[in-house]
Nucleic acid binder design. Structure first.
Length: 208
DNA sequence: TCATTAACACGGG
DNA sequence: CCCGTGTTAATGA
């Protein structure tokens, strides 16, 4: 496990901290679609992503949801931090976007490390900053962009995250992520296909 | 004008 | 048959 940690976090953390992560953390591998964090639940571990990607959504108990941002290797979940420290339940939902490898760190440790390691403190602050910026961008999208541009942004992000031009998802799933109805997604995708931007298939679409 | 909701038909697995 | 998709009609913001 130490090699996987080093190759992703070696340039961020000092040797001592890397060793401690290796000793304390638990390695975990989850399949695509795995629900890592449920809204309303308590969080006891903080994830460090080794490979793969995680989709973070705002979700209420009614099943309404909205995509906030994606996490990739080298990232951690900022919401976890505030959630754990304040001992609140989760405001968000986290689902593995692809098959994902991660290291789980118990929350007590992350508090201890914040005072012990400068690199860890910087990592946490930096992570907060990045996620806050991304969340603001999402707010911008909702406030100022029309659904067709939001859909394009979404597709672009998906291809980047999945490292592939083909996206395996349904119109309904996209509708959930963007918090709209399937009718709209179907119509817009159809238009994009006519314009030669995407190729539509069942359960999967290709960005050209 | 554009989104939402409900309803329906089509077709592939 | 079930599910994903494409479309339409009614209603509302």
């Amino acid at each position: 496990m130490i090699e996987e940690i080093k190759s992703n976090y070696g340039n961020l953390f000092e040797e001592e901290l890397l060793q401690e992560i290796n000793r304390i953390g638990t390695f975990k591998e989850v399949p695509e679609g795995f629900e890592l964090i449920k809204p309303g639940s308590y969080i006891k571990f903080m994830p460090l992503i080794i490979s793969g990607a995680i989709k973070v959504l705002r979700g209420d108990t009614e099943g309404d949801e909205l995509l906030l941002y994606f996490l990739e290797r080298g990232d951690t979940c900022a919401m976890t931090l505030s959630c754990c420290l304040g001992h609140h339940t989760s405001e968000i939902k986290a689902i593995a976007e692809t098959d994902t490898k991660l290291v789980m760190i118990p929350v007590e440790k992350m508090e201890e490390w914040t005072t012990k390691y400068k690199s860890w403190r910087n990592f946490v602050f930096d992570s907060y900053h990045k996620r806050l910026i991304e969340t603001i961008e999402t707010i911008d999208s909702i406030a100022f962009l029309k659904m067709d541009t939001r859909l394009l942004k979404y597709l672009k992000e998906k291809t980047k995250i999945n490292q592939s031009k083909t996206i395996n998802t349904t119109h309904q799933q996209i509708a959930y992520d963007l918090h709209t109805s399937r009718v709209v997604i179907s119509r817009l995708l159809k238009k994009l296909e006519k314009d030669g931007i995407v190729k539509l298939n069942r359960n999967n679409l290709e960005v050209l």
